[in-house]
């Protein structure tokens, strides 16, 4: 047996009201709730009783958890890559800064052309401004948004 449109609407409303916004997962959870309700109706319950039982099995917290866990699973790899990028660009930038200062000082003391030291300092600034800072701010921004949503 299939549920009536108004009954399906109630189930969809329950899922939507609890913040499950990822369409594919929403469809899964709606179908899961419908299956539970249909099974209970098949055993002799009316829709309201069956829906209460289904909500006990998949509570509001469960729905919110499904949303959070799905986002976590989908973004964890990207986040790890981003964090790795932050550390790598920070390391390269710091290393170039140290060597840049060293070669610039060496060039000044020995009165050599300071193109090597200058290039390293320039590279350090480039890595810092166009690598480390954007990645770091993006990560901070995402964490802040997640914090507000939570």
């Amino acid at each position: 047996m299939h549920l009536r449109t108004d009954e399906l609407d109630q189930i969809q409303l329950y899922v939507d009201q609890n913040g499950l916004t990822i369409p594919e997962v929403r469809d899964d959870v709606v179908d899961h709730l419908c299956c539970i309700v249909e099974e209970r109706i098949g055993e002799g319950d009316d829709f309201d009783t069956a829906f209460v039982a289904a909500r006990e099995l998949i509570s509001q917290n469960d729905i919110q958890q499904i949303q959070e866990d799905t986002i976590y699973f989908l973004t964890i790899k990207k986040q790890l890559i981003m964090i790795k990028g932050i550390f790598i660009t920070a390391y390269i930038s710091a290393a170039l800064l140290v060597f840049g200062i060293f070669f610039t000082t060496l060039g000044y003391v020995l009165e050599l052309p300071d193109i090597v030291g200058f290039s390293m300092l320039l590279g350090s600034a480039a890595f810092f401004c166009f690598g480390f800072l954007p990645a770091w701010f993006l990560q901070k921004y995402r964490n802040s948004v997640d914090g507000i949503k939570a």
Binding site: H2, L3, T5, L8, I22, E24, V25, D27, D28, V29, V30, D31, H32, C34, L57, I58, D62, Q65, I66, D69, T70, Y72, F73, L74
Partner: peptide
């Protein structure tokens, strides 16, 4: 359910699973 669906979705996203949506009455079943 809280463990199942995030994992199914994640496995679909990384290409381990394929999902096919089928209309069951007025709802979608994957």
């Amino acid at each position: 359910e809280g463990s199942l669906y995030p994992l199914l979705h994640s496995l679909t996203k990384d290409g381990t699973l394929e999902a096919e949506a089928v209309m069951i009455g007025k709802r979608i079943r994957k």
